[in-house]
Design a protein around this nucleic acid. Structure first.
Lengths: 174, 174
DNA sequence: GATGATCAGTTCCAAAAAAGAACCCAAACG
DNA sequence: CGTTTGGGTTCTTTTTTGGAACTGATCATC
């Protein structure tokens, strides 16, 4: 399969990655959340090649994650701003940063702290269940086909109706 | 900058992406969370090229996100399992899937549902503050240099001590 | 005993994408 | 007039992918 056909897959992860799964795209979005808005600022901060940056900003604009808005006429200049669709990526960005804080920081500790204006504390992001507000544990979550499921080819191996196929193994166990 | 130098950056996002930011890697991890464990199963489900799959599994094993464990001798065969470090990526995976559910699903709705064994309900993941348990809003979060910050070159544009540089613009506003 | 299937890769080559430098253009600045 | 700023585009070289074919050990089957 080609990477470019990813958006046709029947999977929310694949469809999301067709928008943000590129090398660089998430780093661009990180900077967007840090209020970077202009081409040259992105380029200088990221050290990304200018052609690649132009392409990524174009694609993010095409998919309505960023909006290109003029901030000056004569000559017309634009800046790139997160749309609501883009702002909704905040949990993705924070989850990635948090994993890096925990697993990839050196002995000196995390590079950045996040302070919550609501409560005034430095915090970590925690993912909870929308229904019972408990922190999520992957082993407590069951995956079922949803209304938009279509065929079995991309069904989860662990979903009801599609049990993982068993083989004759000696050491394997779930 | 080369993609391969990403892990040396002074940023948790960049360091995380040096592990999981590759094309295909997050899709491989999605399947890991769905209990896929074997080379040919990954290959068949993802439609990924075999050399690329071999490379990604190797890198994930090298970085201790997956562990390669034998499940049969004669001939020895291995399967790939999430380590704790890998399981800790669950919030990243769920946040990405949820964004796709909201923003990339067709009219038919999301392809998969997630049911929480704790409370028995289909749920969405919600990201909250570890200190006050309120749902996080990017506008309520301030970013400060942490203990592991080193120089100013990768400081957030919006951080204290490094305000976004103002320019003489007519239309720009924060 | 030969034939084929299973499983987990590796090798090889063509096609696509990224890295990096140079160039372009319009306007403002000095 | 020459330079700087801002936002790109072009071009060439280097890296990565995509895809098919091949390897090799072990079973299962004819």
């Amino acid at each position: 399969m080609q990477w470019s056909e990813l958006d046709q897959q029947h999977c929310s992860m694949a469809r999301t990655l067709s928008v943000i799964g590129d090398r660089w795209t998430l780093l661009i979005l990180r900077d967007c959340f840090l209020k970077v808005r202009r081409f040259d600022d992105f380029q200088a901060r990221l050290g990304i090649g200018r052609p690649v940056l132009a392409d990524r900003l174009q694609k993010l604009t095409d998919s309505f994650v960023l909006a290109k808005v003029p901030y000056r006429e004569k000559p017309v200049r634009h800046e790139y701003r997160l749309t609501q669709k883009g702002l909704d990526l905040y949990p993705v960005v924070m989850a990635i940063v948090h994993w890096g804080d925990i697993h990839m920081s050196g002995k000196k500790g995390r590079p950045l702290l996040h302070v919550h204006a609501n409560c005034g504390h430095a915090f970590d992001p925690v993912q909870v269940c929308s229904e019972c507000a408990e922190a999520l544990d992957p082993r407590q979550v069951q995956v079922l086909p949803g209304p938009g499921s279509r065929d079995k080819s991309h069904m989860p191996a662990g979903a009801i109706g599609a049990p993982p196929r068993r083989r004759k193994t000696q050491l394997g166990r779930d």
